[in-house]
Simulated assay, not measured.
Amino acid sequence: MTLTDERWHALLETRAADPGAVARAYAERRKRPSLLSGKGTLFLVAADHPARGALSVGGDPMAMADRRSLIERLLIALENPAVDGLLGTPDVVEELLLLGALHDKIVIGSMNRGGLAGADWEIDDRFTGYDAKSVAESGLDGGKMLLRLVDSDPGTVPTLQACAQAVSELAARGLMAMVEPLPYVRDASGKLLLQKDAVSLTRAVTVASGIGVTSAYTWLKLPAADDPAVLNATTLPVVVLGGVPSADPVADLASWGRTLRHETVRGLVVGRTLLYPPDGDVGAAVEAAAKVLEAAK
């Protein structure tokens, strides 16, 4: 689905002159009957980074700032039949809805984006996107929340509490709650560093698994683990996150593939790594990831 000048200008005109078109697009979206594909997997492309001010990819601090470029890349990714759908904030979801790109796709709404990248309060990650009520009313398939665990930062506490409430409220509506628990520490300069050792990741998994009044609808979004024993800490369905792209896409794919083979893992949720590959070929990057998922399952 090409984003021609005509379609782009029509989108801009709709945004300005017909805001009610957004509600109509939500209402008219054809929904897929189940979260999992016929193969029992779930492959989503993620585009919720800009709403948290996280725009950089590789050495370009503004890579995701050009909205037309981002939407074009998402259209290419969503066109691949192996891609089951999208994880995004309301603005991105609505742009793709208005372009007719989300019929028969899974759509997961991103919920807490208030922990702006680099801000002093980054770990106090307020819910500034979708909430459980709007996820349900918009006909989305679930909600996603980021839960960064930093023992030295009291901002972890309100974030943990808010995520627990969101898990409970989504479950009450029979909707998936995708929780992304990530353990961090601050270095001497105050920079946040992701901890990918088995002990830290396992602790994060167990904490996230127990939040809310029920875990019946909870999924976990986790980084590829060097030690697969991390995934033995839960029976909840897991999707592997792409994370910050490395300079070696082949190594990224291999890392995902090792984790995807674990019996609790159901699929992939990848954003920048596929949307902004080093060679610029989004279609090829998405196809390569789809093949890794297929081979693992």
Rank of each mutant, 00 (worst) to 15 (best):
V92F: 04
E94R: 05
E95R: 00
L96S: 09
L96N: 02
L97Q: 04
L98P: 02
L99E: 08
G100Y: 00
A101R: 05
A101T: 04
L102Q: 01
L102E: 00
H103D: 14
H103C: 03
K105R: 14
K105Q: 12
V107F: 00
V107K: 01
I108Y: 05
N112Q: 10
N112F: 02
N112G: 13
G114E: 05
G115A: 08
G115Q: 10
L116I: 15
A117S: 15
A117Q: 13
D120M: 09
D120I: 14
E122N: 01
E122A: 14
I123G: 09
D125P: 12
R126S: 14
F127S: 09
T128L: 10
Y130S: 07
D131Q: 12
D131R: 13
A132W: 09
K133E: 15
K133F: 14
K133H: 13
S134G: 02
S134A: 03
A136C: 11
A136P: 05
A136L: 13
E137C: 06
S138C: 11
G139H: 11
L140Q: 13
L140H: 15
D141S: 07
G142C: 11
G143K: 04
G143E: 01
K144C: 09
M145A: 15
M145C: 15
L146S: 14
L147F: 00
L147I: 06
R148H: 06
L149H: 04
V150M: 15
D151K: 07
S152H: 04
D153T: 10
P154K: 06
L160S: 13
L160G: 14
Q161T: 13
Q161M: 15
Q161H: 11
Q161C: 12
A162E: 02
A162R: 06
A162G: 11
C163W: 01
V167E: 09
V167R: 12
S168Q: 13
E169T: 07
A171E: 02
A172I: 09
R173A: 05
L175T: 07
M176G: 08
M176T: 15
M176N: 03
A177H: 06
A177W: 00
M178R: 00
E180I: 07
P181A: 12
L182R: 06
L182W: 03
D187K: 08
S189K: 05
G190N: 11
G190Q: 02
K191P: 07
L192F: 05
L192W: 01
L193P: 00
L193W: 07
L193D: 01
L193N: 11
L194Q: 05
Q195L: 09
D197G: 07
D197W: 05
A198P: 05
S200W: 04
L201G: 10
T202M: 01
R203S: 14
R203W: 00
R203G: 08
A204Y: 00
V205D: 10
T206M: 10
T206F: 00
T206A: 10
T206I: 09
